[in-house]
């Protein structure tokens, strides 16, 4: 570990914190300047003394930087105030909604990786087969369709026409402590299929194309030809030698896509009325529920900045060439 590597890490961490501070400033300005918080809290029959007292209690009489600092402290403790619409603490609502989104994101991510790798390998090995051509064409159409239309199409096919799967909600959920899961009941499992496909389709296509391209590249290499010459079976050559070497880029891309999955969950959750944080956010925008919007903004920024930082640092850890350059 050279000094320059350490320097790079410190710079990246510093940059991430700076981004979060700016996002926090935006969130705080929303609180402070959208409508009058005192107006929102006090009823019709208020006196000037009431207003002054509440302003002091909320700290609104203090200078702007002090208020911002207090807001940040609250945010770190997970205190974002009370939802204007539901009248409950925002942190409570988010904790209640988060499992639904994370479960959906994990299932669709898993689906995207598994199906994406399988189809990618298949289309690379059977390069000119008609099956590959069909898969590649369908994937092209899948990418150009907007997410919400894919969701509607699936609902039309599987809920309206075939009447096989539910078109909205999470089904029956089981509570394990504060976590609620839909993966332990039959109706919950049935309910997650369509949203997970809708959400994962784009990432699946991406992974498939990446695996296919990498496989085609690797299969041309000498060591693969040599493995064939040694008389190893096709299966061993394709999976042991070729696939293994395609996985590093796949892992990085998937890591970076994690954030997109959570962002696009907003659309999927709305189409399927899935009770997660994405749907909560859309409803918050519709009703201008500032505390919920601010909390979601902070939550998603922490996730994005965290994921990007982690991927950047992992890159340095995995790829020795980068390490050599940095040190």
């Amino acid at each position: 570990m050279g000094g320059r590597l350490l320097n790079y890490i410190i710079r990246r961490v510093f940059q991430s914190v700076l981004v979060l501070l700016v996002v926090g400033l935006v969130a705080f300005s929303m609180f402070r300047f959208v409508g009058d918080p005192v107006d929102n809290m006090l009823g019709q029959e208020r006196t000037d003394a009431d207003i002054e007292r509440l302003r002091a209690v909320l700290g609104l009489d203090q200078p702007f930087p002090v208020q911002y600092w207090k807001f940040l402290q609250g945010a770190i403790d997970g205190n974002f105030g009370v939802s204007y619409r539901q009248g409950r603490p925002v942190s409570e609502i988010i904790v209640e909604r988060l499992p639904a989104t994370l479960e959906l994101a994990m299932v669709s991510g898993f689906l995207a990786i598994m199906v994406g790798i399988i189809l990618g390998v298949y289309t690379a090995i059977r390069r000119d087969g008609w099956g590959s051509n069909v898969i590649m064409t369908v994937s092209l159409i899948g990418v150009s369709l907007p997410t919400f239309l894919i969701g509607i199409l699936l609902i039309y096919l599987f809920s309206v026409e075939l009447d096989l799967l539910p078109s909205f909600g999470r089904g029956e959920v089981t509570h394990l402590g504060w976590w609620s899961t839909g993966l332990l009941t039959a109706s919950g499992l049935k309910a997650i299929i369509l949203p997970a496909i809708t959400l994962g389709l784009y990432q699946m296509t991406l992974i498939m194309r990446l695996v296919r391209a990498e496989m085609l590249e690797v299969l041309r290499q000498d060591y693969v030809r040599f493995a064939r010459a040694r008389g190893l079976s096709e299966r061993v050559v394709n999976f042991r030698h070729a696939l293994k070497n395609t996985l590093v880029p796949v892992i990085t891309v998937t890591g970076l896509q994690l954030g997109s999955i959570i962002a696009f969950a907003i659309i999927t959750e709305t189409v399927f009325q899935w009770p997660g944080v994405g749907l909560l956010f859309i409803n918050a925008i519709q009703f201008v529920d500032i505390p919920v919007m601010a909390a979601y903004l902070m939550l998603i920024s922490v996730m994005f900045v965290g994921i990007n930082l982690a991927v950047d640092l992992l890159y340095v850890a995995i790829d020795p060439r980068l390490r050599g350059e940095a040190s």
Partner: peptide, 16 residues
């Protein structure tokens, strides 16, 4: 950040 998410956030803030 994905563009659509940025657009949603800006829309929400501006609406506020």
């Amino acid at each position: 950040f994905p563009a659509i998410l940025v657009a949603m956030l800006i829309f929400g803030i501006a609406k506020g």
